[in-house]
């Protein structure tokens, strides 16, 4: 299995500074600093409950930080109003851990949903072409009129990914993309993420503790321990680390 090579750092698309988020007395994110560069896949590695999902929900604006800035493509997310947030979210795809496909809608309606924005004007033919392109990208064009309940776990993940891709986002946030999948399907999804990175030059933050997935997709790994950016480096660098807190993830 080959690992994804480090990216030459150029333009920063996400820049997080002194980020803090607490729930009651429990500090989940504590003085977190981080940069994501264009075309780069960064995996955020950490224990369950360490605040990884909170971090990406803060980036997409589903939660508000207590302190700190999150610049996404030049905009500070906590300061955006709802319409500015909406415009920013067109450029960011979010793959939910549970896929979050709408049960009551067909695959086609699920994929069309992000195109409902009133300021996106597309003809019926264009919408159809976009849906078919997104489904072809994930290798499931035949499922277009099926309901999510008729699909397997791996297929649902692919459809969720297709919905994420339909607006051709510049940044994709993956929340545990291979959790709950068998190793073979997990590897296929990881490969798909890599193909998307290459095809559209997307930048991604991937939350995962599936070490096989991490090995395939990561250009760089960030260790989220005690709410801070504890360590950063390539897969090989962190795998060979002497620090027991880092090493335990690779054993």
């Amino acid at each position: 299995m080959t690992t994804n090579k480090p990216i030459i750092k150029k333009e920063s698309v996400i820049s997080i500074n002194d980020l803090n988020k607490a729930f009651g007395d429990h500090k989940v994110i504590n003085e977190f600093n981080f940069n994501l560069f264009r075309g780069e896949n960064v995996v955020v590695l950490g224990k369950s409950g360490s605040g990884k999902s909170v971090l990406i929900k803060l980036i997409i604006g589903l939660m508000k930080p207590d302190k700190g800035t999150i610049h996404v493509l030049g905009n500070n997310v906590p300061e955006l109003n709802s319409s500015e947030l909406d415009e920013m979210r067109v450029k960011i795809g979010f793959l939910f851990q549970s896929n979050a496909l709408y049960d009551s809608m067909t695959v086609r309606e699920n994929l069309e949903f992000p195109l409902r924005r009133h300021w996106i004007k597309t003809s019926k033919q264009d919408v159809n072409a976009l849906v078919i392109e997104a489904l072809t990208n994930v290798g499931l064009p035949e499922t277009i009129d099926m309901m999510p309940s008729e699909l397997s776990g791996g297929m649902r993940k692919r459809i969720a990914l297709a919905r994420t891709l339909i607006l051709k986002p510049e940044i994709i946030l993956y929340d545990e993309p291979t959790t709950g999948l068998d190793p073979i399907t997990g590897k296929e999804i990881s490969q798909l993420m890599l193909d998307i990175q290459k095809k559209y030059n997307t930048s991604s933050i991937i939350i995962s503790h599936d070490i096989n997935c991490v090995k395939i997709v990561a250009n760089r790994i960030v260790m989220l321990i005690d709410g801070t950016c504890y360590a950063t480096g390539t897969f090989q660098e962190l795998e060979n680390s002497k620090d027991p807190k880092v090493k335990q993830f690779f054993e």
Binding site: I60, L62, D86, I92, D103
Partner: peptide
């Protein structure tokens, strides 16, 4: 199942 969050992210209130 995070469908409400997904709707928010998809630009639908």
């Amino acid at each position: 199942t995070e469908q409400i969050d997904a709707m928010d992210v998809s630009g639908t209130n």
